[in-house]
């Protein structure tokens, strides 16, 4: 697709030289990535490449060992999920991160409940809001009274997506948001992404589906073994070249190489 985003001015998100290690494993190693308003940046890479870990640092789930995060050009201190939400960063986790034993509305508002004038939970209002937002994503969904553990995988995923878009996010992180969805629901999420993009929201999209990525993303960023192989506009590279980046770590001419790019040995 044609890249219409003006990548000038200050980026919405600028993560610089981020590293984190678990025990001996350098899950993310000196990774830098940025995101502009109204832009969709896809994160690609093999299993265990460090994609989820990198975005979990942005969403406050993990504390980085080193590196800086800038939001709108200002250095942000994000050390827990609450901090990230204050910056308007909302996340759909790969694991969905739903409390299985409570219903959809309780999950949507978890940590940000609507209260009555008496300081008690306003379950009615929360359910009404939940019905509205779920109607946008999955109009056939009716099981509002049941704990989410009883829902299907796709329905659970819809709940997780609904939660992320409910609070007027400025930055949306989607970690494999359509992995469990049927074709119709996947298309709906695609539409949603375009709609949010038009509203000026920046989106990090993690996906293994190259086809989807080329349809939705303005840029791709490929990771391998915790390092960034390279970043490229989807208009400047072919799908095969991106596959080469993922599998071999080979950076094509249309991409800006990162620290993880295959060094051409002499």
């Amino acid at each position: 697709m044609v890249d219409t985003t003006a990548r000038t001015g200050t980026p919405l998100i600028d993560m610089r030289n981020i590293s984190i290690a678990f025990g001996g494993i350098r899950a993310v190693d000196d990774a830098s990535i940025d995101l502009f308003p109204g832009e969709v940046v896809a994160l690609l890479g093999h299993n265990g490449a460090g994609k989820s870990t990198l975005i979990k640092i942005l969403s406050g789930a993990y504390k980085r060992d080193s590196g800086q995060i800038f939001v709108n050009g200002e250095e942000a201190s994000i050390s827990n999920p609450r901090d990230a939400k204050k910056y308007g960063i909302e996340t759909i986790y790969q694991t969905l991160a739903l409390a299985d034993n409570v219903d959809a509305a309780a999950n949507l508002f978890l940590g940000r409940e609507l209260m009555t004038g008496w300081g008690t939970l306003d379950d009615g209002a929360m359910e009404a809001e939940a019905r509205k937002v779920m109607g946008r994503l999955n109009p056939r969904f009716q099981r509002f009274k049941e704990p989410v553990v009883k829902l299907s995988g796709g329905q659970r995923q819809s709940v997780a997506i609904a939660r992320a878009i409910l609070f007027n996010a400025r930055i949306l992180i989607m970690d494999e948001p359509t992995a469990a969805l049927g074709p119709q629901e996947t298309a709906q999420v695609g539409e949603l992404v375009m709609q949010l993009k038009a509203d000026g929201i920046g989106i990090f999209l993690i996906s293994h589906d190259i086809h989807d990525v080329f349809e939705l993303a303005d840029r791709v960023c490929v990771m391998k073994n915790g390092q960034v192989v390279g970043t490229a506009r989807t208009s400047d590279v072919t799908q095969d070249e991106v596959l080469g980046m993922i599998i071999l770590g080979k950076c094509p001419p249309g991409a800006i190489p990162g620290p993880g790019a295959l060094k051409i040995a002499a």
């Binding site: 969905l96 991160a97 309780a106 940590g111």
Partner: peptide, 14 residues
């Protein structure tokens, strides 16, 4: 109840 259902999710919800 949310913590009992999924401690990690509760933590991630802030």
């Amino acid at each position: 109840f949310a913590i009992g259902g999924n401690p990690e999710a509760a933590e991630l919800a802030g």
